[in-house]
């Protein structure tokens, strides 16, 4: 039984990864799971300098999911390289660095600093809804997408994944723009913008009023978008959005995703990643699937 998948020349032992921003750099979850089991750890967004993020409250629960407006709080790329890469390299898993910035220059600075670093791939975050500059402002305009992707691609010495925003009318347009800009792979979806109001306090729950929605409730939307993008571009696609278990993961693979990421489900069940891997293997045994790649994109 073969669970390995290949993304841009990088072989993952299985298609299951972590969605950026839900898993830190793995330290917290290493108390609950064996990180060696994961296909890859996609780390929390890294900027060229430390970011403090948005004021609390940053979290709101919604039916079947949650909203966040963390705003990419992170200790910066220098701290990341010194502390998190050595930590993650203790484990036999791939390291994918999520790169964030307020401007093209900031994205480029991070990628430059990561040249030669012992990581496997980069993921360009042009889809965070919780920052006022950069983030989703770049990721929803195909012209900007192509511009920032090509600027970053020139500096990158690792395969470049571009993470797309679902907050667009037609996600295949930004997907194609990323492809034209030189992306090596795509990942989707980032969170859907959403809101919650506390009717007793008569105020939005989140300090920033609007945040990004994630969790099981967004899965059908994410799956539809992954399906559409897989048919629109020739790049490998990593699917995410509400994936909580093996059944969810297999849906994304059948829709065309080469890999899948577990995000919010980590918060609900700290062993969600390995439970998903176990479930995929169980499915493959039960239904005589020799190679996980046989299932990819079987939905016409």
């Amino acid at each position: 039984m073969k669970t390995e998948v290949n993304i841009c020349g990088v072989t993952l032992k299985n298609p299951v990864m972590t969605a950026s921003g839900t898993f830190g750099s793995g330290r917290e979850y290493s108390e609950f799971i064996d990180l060696n089991r994961l296909g890859a750890v996609v780390v929390k967004g890294v900027a060229d300098k430390p970011w403090q993020g948005n004021p609390a409250p940053r979290i709101a629960e919604v039916y079947g999911g949650m909203l966040n407006s963390v705003g990419l709080q992170n200790p910066g790329v220098d701290w990341f390289m010194e502390n998190d890469i050595p930590f993650l390299r203790q484990f036999d898993t791939k390291i994918i660095v999520n790169v964030c910035g307020h401007s093209v220059d900031e994205y480029v600075n991070v990628v430059r600093k990561l040249r030669g670093a012992d990581v496997d791939m980069l993921e360009l975050n042009i889809s965070c809804p919780n920052v006022s500059e950069g983030g989703m402002a770049f990721g929803t305009d195909p012209v900007m997408v192509k511009k920032v992707v090509s600027a970053v691609k020139r500096e990158a010495d690792k395969p470049l994944i571009v993470k797309l925003s679902p907050n667009v009318t037609d996600i295949t347009l930004t997907a194609k723009a990323a492809e034209e800009g030189g992306a090596d792979a795509l990942s989707l979806i980032n969170t859907l913008t959403g809101m919650k109001i506390d009717i007793y306090r008569r105020q939005p729950v989140l300090s920033r009023k609007i945040g990004g929605m994630s969790g099981p409730a967004v899965k059908p939307v994410a799956l539809r978008m992954v399906y559409e993008v897989c048919r629109a571009v020739d790049l490998p696609v990593i699917g995410m959005g509400g994936i909580s278990n093996a059944e969810d993961a297999l849906e994304f693979i059948m829709a065309g995703a080469v890999g899948v990421s577990i995000g919010t489900a980590n918060f609900i069940n700290p062993t969600a990643t390995v439970d998903t891997i176990d479930g995929i293997e169980e499915y493959m045994r039960k239904y005589n699937v020799e190679d996980i790649n046989e299932l990819r994109g079987i939905i016409e």
Partner: peptide, 16 residues
């Protein structure tokens, strides 16, 4: 106290 999602330091929601 603050609103939190994970309780273990990963989501970075509950800041002060």
């Amino acid at each position: 106290e603050e609103r939190m999602a994970c309780g273990i330091g990963a989501c970075v929601g509950c800041v002060v």
